[in-house]
Design a binder for these strands. Structure first.
Lengths: 210, 210
DNA sequence: GTCTATAACGTGATAGAC
DNA sequence: GTCTATCACGTTATAGAC
């Protein structure tokens, strides 16, 4: 349903790496928790929302994640591990910088289509200061992982002549992450086409040739 | 403390237009409410937060705004009226498209420095679907006001040779608003310099000459 | 591993005195 | 216009039975 699925079939699909070690309830908790967190933010969902989706009581979730911060920290940490693993895989697969970056845009679109209008590191930004240090730290690590990877791809694409942009790769990565955070949110009320249009312009702004 | 204050001294400063018709308590309610709403989002603040800032009880605020949705709808509506008035004033003052757009960036930076890491229309996006239609409608009107104005300035700047960008003015305005929404949020945890750097790149991406 | 029951708390909101 | 008092409700979290 989204553009370029072929590039991203294995990228960041529902935390598969860790979830295969979990029982089904735990998997479902993380599945729905990620949707709620990434569509409503930290304060926008409750254990009851999740438990209702599973047909269990909220107390059962506390068995897996005693506190809400444990649940969110786990989501962020595993999101980071999966991103790191998948980024590495993308790089190893030897595609061009354009193909690699496209896989990230595909991931963004796929998440958006799942109802996730906020990317994982953006999901706790508004509540950042009131969250325990453990969650803050996970989020900064996750953000750093993404920024570093995008910057690396941009640098590579620039050197290979695939991209052509003003500013350093680091600055560009920063702008791109910020843009995707905001555009996803804006698109949640303006519609999917807004996200499509904006990604198209983001590409043109880095001199993307295709 | 922010760049280019000279351009924006009268833009959107604390809802002055409407607030001069209000008593001091009402003014202060709106003042702090706008800060809380734009830094924590709709579900991130309470009447108690505001009342504590004023040294009164939360029940007193219900005298001005019976329901929370009334308060937020009022904030969005008056934000829209002020934006419309100030946009008109900027245009009348006859500055170049660059100068006009700069005043919007200045406004963004000034709000950021006030602790407002979300722009008004972005502040209710996460909670959009659960909010009453009255608030949704105000937010869409506000968003439209901003998009229309930016698009108009971009179009003018393009025609005058001040700007040079790929895509239509409408698409560019959409990207710019999305980018500012996300970059402000990202900058709330990455720091003010991130916002400065990103605005600089936004300018370069529309072929801004200066 | 899931349940019932319950505690502790914050929030939105209202009534009525002053 | 602000107060005290109070209500109804949802949320986080825990204890203990099954």
């Amino acid at each position: 349903m989204y553009i370029g699925r072929n590039y991203s079939i294995n990228l960041l699909t529902d935390l598969f790496v860790i979830m295969r070690d979990m029982n089904q309830t735990n998997q479902q908790i993380l599945h729905y928790a990620s949707i709620f967190l990434q569509s409503r933010g930290y304060n926008g969902f409750s254990y009851k929302d999740i438990s209702q989706k599973l047909g269990i009581k909220n107390a059962a979730i506390h068995n897996y994640y005693p506190k809400k911060e444990d649940l969110v920290a786990a989501l962020l940490e595993e999101s980071r591990k999966n991103i790191a693993a998948n980024f590495a895989q993308i790089v190893e697969s030897g595609g061009s910088a354009s193909e690699q970056l496209q896989s990230y845009f595909d991931y963004t679109l796929r998440e958006f289509d799942e109802g996730k209008c906020i990317c994982p590191p953006g999901s706790v930004i508004l509540d950042f200061e009131e969250l325990p240090e453990k969650v803050q730290k996970q989020n900064l690590l996750l953000l750093d992982e993404i920024l570093t990877w995008i910057s690396r791809v941009l640098k590579s694409g620039m050197e290979q002549g695939e991209f052509n942009f003003y500013g350093s790769p680091d600055e560009r990565a920063e702008l791109m992450v910020g843009t995707l955070i905001g555009t996803r949110q804006l698109s949640s009320i303006k519609g999917r086409k807004t996200l499509i249009r904006s990604i198209s312009l983001i590409k043109s702004d880095i001199g993307w040739k295709d």
